[in-house]
């Protein structure tokens, strides 16, 4: 049941990527009607002057025009948080923002988080805590986490849960997402009134994650 072939070249280590993009149409979205509006968006520090269909959401503009597909579309109604980005430093759902209305704003997306190839501490914590499975909600979760820290809302454990509740994760990674946030913010898990701390800590994966980090196992493959 084996066949042998020969070939040359070593495999690259990059993640699977989309085919090379057609840079000629960088800015020439095909279907923009005459009523297109000029807007300037500064995205991840870079200014873009675009002519947008007034109907286009910020999310679609980021994804389709600027090819920043890190922000995801899950519902287009503000219900899932997959499209979370920062606008002028605050978390928003980009599916409910019209791009025209964002003229002159500064937008930060997941692509703008890792400075100089170094992961943001929360990105690293997500890796270490395994705070995702399919990864689809992950850019939104991370932007929400970064945003809540920037907005000064990382107060205590209960508030963390609530602050993260606008970002659905159907894979159910919440306990690990919380663990990643706790680690990044230094917030301790809330003690449980009746059942004792230890069990909760274990269940919350806190010790496990600390151990992973200590043993370096968390770095495997990262």
């Amino acid at each position: 049941m084996s066949e042998t072939t020969t070939g040359a070249g070593a495999p690259a280590r990059e993640p699977v990527r989309a085919p090379a993009r057609d840079s000629a149409r960088d800015d020439a979205s095909p279907g923009v009607p005459p009523a297109a509006h000029p807007v300037r968006l500064t995205v991840n520090g870079e200014a873009h002057d675009l002519a947008v269909d007034p109907r286009a959401t910020l999310l679609d503009t980021l994804r389709e025009r600027l090819r920043l597909t890190g922000a995801k579309k899950g519902c287009e109604h503000g219900s899932c948080g997959a499209c979370t980005v920062l606008v002028d430093g605050r978390r928003v759902v980009s599916c409910l923002a019209l791009a025209v209305a964002c003229d002159g704003r500064e937008v930060t997306t997941i692509e703008g988080l890792a400075a100089g190839g170094r992961l943001h501490p929360l990105q690293q914590a997500f890796l270490d805590a395994d705070a995702f499975q399919c990864g689809y909600c992950t850019p939104g979760q991370i932007m929400s986490g970064v945003g809540l820290m920037a907005e000064g809302r990382a107060r205590d454990d209960a508030s963390l849960r609530d602050e993260l509740s606008g970002n659905l994760c159907r894979c159910g990674a919440y306990p690990n997402i919380l663990a990643a946030l706790r680690r990044t913010t230094g917030i301790e898990p809330a003690p449980d009134a009746t059942r004792g701390d230890d069990r909760l800590r274990a269940a919350a994966g806190v010790d496990e994650i600390a151990r992973d980090a200590r043993d370096g196992a968390g770095q495997g493959g990262a």
Binding site: L119, A217, G220
Partner: peptide, 22 residues
């Protein structure tokens, strides 16, 4: 308990899902 090998792509927004292909 190694970390996900596709994790870096997922936490940076580089992972490409069906609607993301250019």
């Amino acid at each position: 308990p190694v970390s996900r090998v596709d994790g870096p792509a997922k936490v940076t927004g580089a992972a490409v899902y069906a609607a993301d292909f250019d």
